[in-house]
């Protein structure tokens, strides 16, 4: 069982126009930057993207936006992106805003064979409009749908050839959930290691959720808001 392939260009050839893709990352942290670049180069259109954010104007999913490859975006926060604002105001892109915790749970549920679930989030707000609301133990809950995507793009730190994945720090974020929600999950990582090098205790995403593994070179890993303190001093 060897899921490792070499070419980002080749691996995205299976993605047709109109596909839905769950994309990991939070802001620009832990995004599958090489897979996004390959999809931009391929020019695949009419995509439905499930992702917490939509990149910035010149990086991440923002690059797909710029080339008008996204038809529908399901996200919790799409600020920091002028291209998005323009396409939204012109009615060129369909947007479904989903609370962050609901989006995470929708991906987890979809990937776990659960088609829908009740959540307290959004009761009495515009998010609940048109959705079933039901009482349990005297409290109201909104019915939200699980997400299953045609593909998932995820970014890990290390992987083995079976597709076991370890993430680094908060770059984990939505990646394990997208891995579960994708019918075909493609993982890009910084390093591919030998079988056994990842301890079973430390694997975050077990191999079963991953179909393809690629190693990327020279990760750019952009920082959206660089906040620091001086040595020994305050922020």
């Amino acid at each position: 069982m060897d899921k490792v392939t070499q070419s980002f260009e080749e691996i995205v050839k299976q993605i047709p126009d109109g596909a839905s893709i769950a994309v990991g990352g939070f802001g620009l942290s832990g995004i599958p930057e090489k897979l996004i670049l390959a999809l931009v180069a391929q020019g695949t259109k009419d995509l439905t993207i499930y992702s917490n954010n939509c990149g910035v104007d010149d990086w991440g999913l923002g690059l797909l936006l710029k080339e008008r490859q996204i038809k529908k975006m399901v996200a919790s926060y799409v600020g920091e992106n002028k291209t998005f604002e323009q396409q939204f105001l012109n009615g060129e892109i369909d947007v479904e805003l989903t609370p962050q915790g609901t989006l995470a749970e929708r991906l987890r549920a979809g990937g776990s064979g659960i088609p829908a679930f009740y959540t307290p989030t959004g009761v009495g707000t515009p998010i609940a409009e048109g959705k079933e609301v039901r009482q349990f133990d005297g409290e109201e809950y909104v019915l939200e749908r699980g997400i299953v995507a045609d593909f998932a793009f995820i970014k890990g730190w290390k992987a083995d050839r079976y597709g076991n994945i370890v993430y680094r720090h908060t770059a984990q974020n939505f990646n394990p959930l997208c891995a579960m929600a994708g019918k075909v999950t493609i993982a890009e990582v910084e390093e591919i290691v030998e079988l056994g090098a990842l301890l079973p205790d430390e694997v975050h995403t077990p191999a079963v959720f991953v179909q393809h593994v690629l190693a990327g070179q020279q990760y750019e890993k952009r920082i959206e808001k660089r906040t620091v303190r001086s040595k020994g001093g305050e922020a």
Binding site: A75, S76, Y77, V78, G79, F88, V95, L97, P99, Q100, G101, T102, T121, G122, T125, I127
Partner: peptide, 9 residues
């Protein structure tokens, strides 16, 4: 509209 992020949860 920028989005609600995690505030509703």
């Amino acid at each position: 509209v920028k989005g609600m992020g995690g505030a509703m949860d």
